[in-house]
């Protein structure tokens, strides 16, 4: 039974790994800070539910949008803009 518990614990930890890894290009906070005054920069806070409510930090000037409504809000931004999606 103890082996089963250890196996389940391993599976649990493994299940969390895909959430940590990501292929999406990322930006460091220093890079973002350097661009904060740029007129072409748009920061979109796409965190929802507890991902948003549990976080202490909100980026100044970020617009909160729902990731599921991308078709709706994507029209508001130009293709040549730097769009930063803040998801976690």
């Amino acid at each position: 039974m103890k082996k089963l518990i250890l196996l389940l614990s391993f599976l649990l930890l493994s299940a969390g790994l895909p959430a940590i890894a990501s292929d999406v290009p990322t930006m460091s906070k220093e890079e973002l800070k350097a661009q904060l005054n740029s007129s072409t920069l748009a920061i979109l806070d796409v965190r929802s539910g507890r991902d948003w409510s549990s976080s202490e930090f909100k980026i100044t000037g970020a617009v909160r949008v729902l990731g599921s409504e991308i078709a709706k809000w994507s029209k508001d931004y130009k293709k040549d803009q730097t769009i930063v999606l803040y998801c976690a």
Binding site: L4, L8, L12, A15, P18, S48, G49, R50
Partner: peptide, 26 residues
């Protein structure tokens, strides 16, 4: 021996499936 790992597995699945980012969790 059964209950804690099963609850942990269910919790892990709910977290991995993104329930935390859904208002449904509340």
């Amino acid at each position: 021996y059964l209950l804690p790992p099963l609850v942990a597995l269910a919790t892990g699945i709910l977290m991995a499936r993104g329930l935390a980012g859904d208002d449904l969790l509340e």
